[in-house]
């Protein structure tokens, strides 16, 4: 597959991915993974701010938050949960495939994952459209007749901020996986070197992880 690729990759020396300041490739992988986990730690703390906001306002307006959660579309929320969990499963299958050096299967699983991500966004956009239509909006834009309680607009502020930031992460994760998939397709990764596939997967699992908590907190309780 590399013969028709042009000069960019034809010029790559063997083991091009091994940076000279690391003793061996495993030391490099270890450092790279640690960096990724540190980044994921900051992502957890970023979302922690929103979860904290949710918790505080839920404590201040327990009844409103309970009733407002009943006005979200549970079946669409559940569908999106299943989609995201399945996409986490397919991305790990992609990683497993490249670990075995099977880049064709890896590309296939990454493509399925990206399709799942797209599906998630489509479902989410239907939900958003419905809420815009009904006036279930944050702050002063709130005009929904079905739930007129103090704090309802705060619930929707938290809802849109949390799911919006999460959807942004879905878009970023999808782009990363698409980039990784492109590079797998080029034959840049193999059984020995595939740490970018792993890290893209880790990011995607984090997106799933956040949703695992957002879903019950927003839609169910």
């Amino acid at each position: 597959m590399s013969s028709s690729e042009g000069h960019a990759h034809a010029a790559r020396p063997p083991r091009w991915y091994h940076a000279h300041h690391f003793d061996n490739i495993e030391t490099q992988n270890h450092a790279v993974r640690l960096g990724m986990w540190l980044f994921l730690g900051t992502e957890v703390l970023l979302f922690a701010g929103l979860f904290l906001g949710y918790t505080v306002y839920r404590w201040l307006y327990p009844q409103t938050f309970h009733l407002a959660s009943r006005h979200l579309d549970l079946s669409l929320g559940t569908l999106n949960t299943v989609i995201l969990i399945t996409s986490s499963f397919t991305v790990v299958l992609g990683y497993n495939a490249i670990q075995r050096g099977n880049s064709k299967a890896c590309v296939r699983w990454l493509a399925v994952t990206i399709l799942c991500a797209l599906g998630f966004l489509v479902v989410k956009s239907f939900e958003y459209r419905h809420k815009f239509h009904e006036g279930m909006l944050p702050g002063k834009f709130y005009s929904y007749e079905g739930l007129q309680l103090p704090g309802a607009n705060i619930f929707y502020a938290v809802y849109f901020l949390a799911t919006g930031l999460h959807a942004f992460h879905v878009i970023v994760g999808m782009s990363i996986l698409a980039w990784v998939m492109f590079r797998v397709k080029k034959g840049l990764y193999n059984a020995e070197y595939h740490v970018p596939v792993e890290l893209g997967g880790l990011y995607w699992h984090l997106v799933d992880l956040i949703w695992i908590f957002l879903f019950p907190l927003l839609y169910l309780i």
């Binding site: 986990w37 957890v44 703390l45």
Partner: peptide, 13 residues
């Protein structure tokens, strides 16, 4: 790294 970041979330809460 991950456990500590979760721990700090709990400290924040």
């Amino acid at each position: 790294v991950f456990v500590v970041s979760v721990l700090f979330v709990l400290v924040l809460l």
